[in-house]
Design a protein around this nucleic acid. Structure first.
Lengths: 244, 244
DNA sequence: AGCTGTGAACGCATTCACAGCC
DNA sequence: GGCTGTGAATGCGTTCACAGCT
């Protein structure tokens, strides 16, 4: 029964946007941003919606519609100035400065995240690595030391951290989440395979390996079912059958 | 201009489903499956749509609509038999048997994926770990040895692998992807921060850390902008302001 | 009486197609 | 002539509300 004690998982969807940019568009802005960085690196100064759309893996109508929510940053008959558009999108997303991030749970995955080099170049800076296991505390990863989770409140306040990443085992995730929220974190990215609940006003997104694989498995099963193979079981796809 | 050489990124969306289960529903089935496993472990034999929905973090109308696409597996006036429904969903997704998976790129992230214990319990089995770097080849991770990427064709055929996971650096990803497809892989989960192109018939999903963080940053920026703080810049959220 | 299964209503996202500007 | 920006049309997903079964 929801609505009672815990205000059931609040998704990021919320129409109280400043200028009302649709959530689906928000989710694509980072893709456009990356595509623009790629174009810059290749020395392209100007691009059409068609070119940018191809680089981002969407169709050009969608791209233009998306950009139209931000304003009129293109020139009719010409296209978009890559640098200018890049800056506008970065500003809209809010990654013209770096956001400090705390990562909780420095196991295999936490290590991988801590070592991920794309953070700094994409608007984020790891401010703290926390783990509940005293064995791991004190270890250095990159130029940060792993600290105890009990220091979370102090660190969040000291570094003005608003974003937390949960990379703990599933059973610990909800408790960690609650304490992050209590410490003042208002955005959480969850890698633990559990449904987390957060209060209103806290944004929650999740990344879930087995869910992604299961979605692929579903479609894979449908493919094999259409073939003259034995049945719809894994392992009997006669390699190279579907696709080109 | 796309549509020419490379048939631009094919998303999983495709209405040529057997029984036409909507893509949004397919994406939630794994969540329901996990919730049902949780209920089983807690010894619950029967549950209402309300209870299951709460455990899965969705509302009950959506849950019932989703389940209705699979068939009538509940009992009016009573609810759902947990075990029975669990099996039906597992069968629909196709995870009543294990799917062999190949992981390419055994860096930090690849290691984390290779060590992830949830694979086997959720319908997958790591059949091979590949890396292009000879330094890494021969190393053992769990009970598998890291092999050279050049063996991919042989391994895919030998183990009837249909699903590939790309955890390489971004610059290598498209080439790896092309070769996986050439070897007969028809479903790919991509962790590299690039837009990949695959031929029709190959399903592609991506997991992208910086995109997820940037989406959170966007909403975070909107929150701070509403406060009487200094400006909309990262770092000036007076901890504990939004939410409860 | 209670809870599922589902048509109908609604709202959001994508695509179309063209007016408007360079 | 070319390309952007955008109303209008379409399609998809969610929610409502209740008929139908136990």
């Amino acid at each position: 029964m929801p609505g009672a004690a815990r205000p059931t998982a609040a998704k990021v969807a919320d129409r109280s946007n400043d200028r009302g940019i649709p959530e689906a568009t928000v989710a694509r802005l980072p893709v456009y941003l990356r595509a623009l960085v790629g174009l810059t690196e290749r020395g392209t100064a100007t691009c059409s919606s068609e070119e940018l759309a191809a680089a981002a893996g969407v169709n050009s109508a969608k791209l233009r519609k998306d950009l139209s929510y931000l304003g009129s940053y293109g020139t009719r008959g010409v296209g978009y100035d890559v640098e200018y558009l890049r800056y506008q999108i970065a500003r809209e997303i809010g990654v013209t400065q770096d956001w400090p991030v705390v990562i909780v749970g420095i196991g295999n995955l936490g290590h991988a995240l801590a070592n991920f080099s794309g953070f700094s170049s994409r608007g984020f800076r790891i401010a703290a690595l926390l783990d509940a296991d005293p064995e791991r505390q004190g270890e250095r990863v990159g130029d940060l030391e792993i600290l105890g989770f009990e220091q979370v409140e102090q660190l969040v306040e000291e570094h003005r951290i608003a974003i937390g990443v949960i990379a703990t085992p599933a059973p610990a995730a909800q408790a960690v989440c609650d304490r992050l929220v209590g410490a003042g974190i208002t955005s959480i990215l969850n890698f633990a395979p559990v449904v987390l609940s957060v209060p209103d006003g806290v944004d929650l997104r999740k990344v879930d390996l087995s869910i992604e694989l299961q979605i692929l498995a579903y479609h894979e099963q449908r493919k094999s079912a259409l073939l003259p193979g034995l049945s719809g079981l894994p392992g009997d796809l006669p390699a190279k059958a579907v696709g080109r």
